[in-house]
Design a protein around this nucleic acid. Structure first.
Length: 419
RNA sequence: GCGGAAGUAGCUCAGUUGGCAGAGCACCUGGUUGUGGCCCAGGUGGCCGUGGGUUCAAAUCCCAUCUUUCGCCCCA
């Protein structure tokens, strides 16, 4: 195996995918700013302990998916598997958490999870994250979800479905968990699939999410979260739904929607697409009221989402790149000298263009010009350089004119010869 | 971590009783002394993923390995 090759699950990104990423980031920045979000950039590397404490020791992410290794002093470091923990850490550490008010934070960048790659899943992948900290109000939940849908609309995406659920809080969830466990244990042990028999003990809520037909049948008869959450949680969830309704957002209640990270409580949601392979979730998030406190910060509530950029990119139509304004064909030494200076002048005037570096034949250079997709070919041969002229050829129509070099810029900008 | 499929030219892929390495597209040159696209003619380009094995002979059969890909688990 060559050492000069990509690491498995780590991708190089060329256009159009790299263009799609730029577009997602720019669109996100613009939309989120309308809601008062500011950009936060946090480090990619954090102490392992941060993720263990925030995501949860028992989760798959922490148990088997993190890139963890010791630094030179033997402290365990981890490449972040998700963004929220780092954002919380920065929030608490900066002192923002101690101040009054609500903080709305947007961030994006690479995350790392050591999993088997497949469609829509890489070991280095990218997320756009938004976190709204400092408010326990259902208005915060609804605003965040509305903003996410706004973002998707701005990217002209369709065919997406919003699912929501409530997981209850620290008070009512344990009761539900026990009720569910009692129900599962009362069943014939063969009723559940192998995974769920195991999950029943590690994280019984995940059984609700199993895709196996047998388990789904079992789940139909199981107690439901929404029937057992406490009045405060029910009120909160009801308000979130009311707010989404008033804005005309369609959503589906999904009582099986259980997120895999321990810190979620109350509202959870995800946006799914059926067009991106087996991994259907494009974005997911929820409320995580105890998280900052569990990291040693003040008791500040929060709600946030993560949006998978690779998965989003699968849904974006490839934007056709803007064509070059000119391709300059320079012949012989003097053509190269004059052309180099002219091309620079044109670019500084805002035009986009390339020129040939090599001294090839006419035919070859004209072919280069044609392939470049430029609107105009500018030709500087011996005849033109001697007179200070330049040939301007419209590559689409084939029409061409000879102009003075000092008028080309105006022509390319306006399409007319006279000023 | 577990399972299926696949690795042959820059790209998409043909290539079985085991017998000289192929096509289309792309690229280069010419047909046209200084004019691209269409057309015509010619040309460059391959350790057939890698390492072993079987054989007179392996792209082809066997083993291992790496990579990609689609799923499972889980997540964005």
């Amino acid at each position: 195996m060559s050492t000069t090759q990509r690491i498995k699950g780590f991708a190089d990104m060329f256009p159009p995918e790299s263009d799609a990423f730029t577009r997602m980031e720019n669109t996100g920045r613009e939309i989120f700013a309308r809601y008062g979000f500011v950009e936060l950039r946090t480090p990619i590397l954090e102490f392992t302990e941060l993720f263990q404490r925030s995501i949860g020791e028992e989760t798959d992410v922490v148990q088997k998916e993190m890139y963890t290794f010791p630094d030179s002093r033997g402290r365990l470091m981890t490449l972040r598997p998700e963004a929220t923990a780092g954002v919380m850490r920065a929030y608490a550490e900066s002192g923002l958490a101690g101040r009054e008010g609500v903080s709305r934070l947007f961030s994006c960048g690479p995350m790392f999870r050591h999993e088997r790659p497949q469609k829509g899943r890489l070991r280095q992948f990218h997320q756009i994250n938004c976190e709204c900290l400092g408010s326990a109000s259902p208005f915060a939940d609804a605003e965040l979800i509305s903003m996410l849908l706004h973002f998707f609309r701005a990217l002209r995406l369709s065919g997406l479905t919003l699912n929501i659920n409530s997981l209850g809080c620290a008070v009512c969830r344990p009761h539900f968990r026990e009720a569910l466990l009692r129900y599962l244990q009362s069943l014939d042990p063969a009723a559940l699939c192998e995974d769920c028999s195991r999950r029943m003990h590690t994280n019984p809520l995940r059984v609700l999410d199993c895709k196996q037909a047998s388990c789904r049948a079992v789940v139909e008869g199981a107690p439901r979260l929404l029937d057992s959450i406490c009045p405060d949680c029910a009120e909160h969830f009801s308000t979130v739904q009311k707010l989404l309704d008033r804005q005309g957002h369609a959503f589906a209640l999904d009582h099986r929607l259980v997120r895999g990270l321990d810190y979620y409580c109350r509202t959870t949601f995800e946006v799914v697409s059926s067009q991106i392979g087996a991994q259907t979730a494009v974005a997911g998030g929820g409320r995580y009221d105890g998280l900052v406190k569990s990291l040693g910060g003040p008791d500040v509530p929060g709600v946030g989402f993560a949006c998978g950029m690779e998965r989003l990119a699968l849904l974006l139509d490839a934007p056709s790149p803007a064509p070059l304004d000119f391709y300059l064909v320079a012949l012989e030494e003097e053509g190269g000298l004059q052309g180099h200076a002219l091309a620079q002048t044109l670019r500084e005037a805002g035009l986009r263009g390339e020129m040939n570096f090599s001294r090839a034949s006419w035919k070859s250079l004209m072919r280069q010009a044609g392939k470049s997709g430029a609107r105009y070919c500018l030709i500087l041969g011996p005849d033109e350089t001697a007179r200070g002229d330049i040939v301007v050829k419209n590559l689409e129509s084939g029409e061409q004119n000879t102009l003075g070099q000092d008028t080309v810029c105006h022509f390319l900008q306006t399409g007319t010869i006279h000023d």
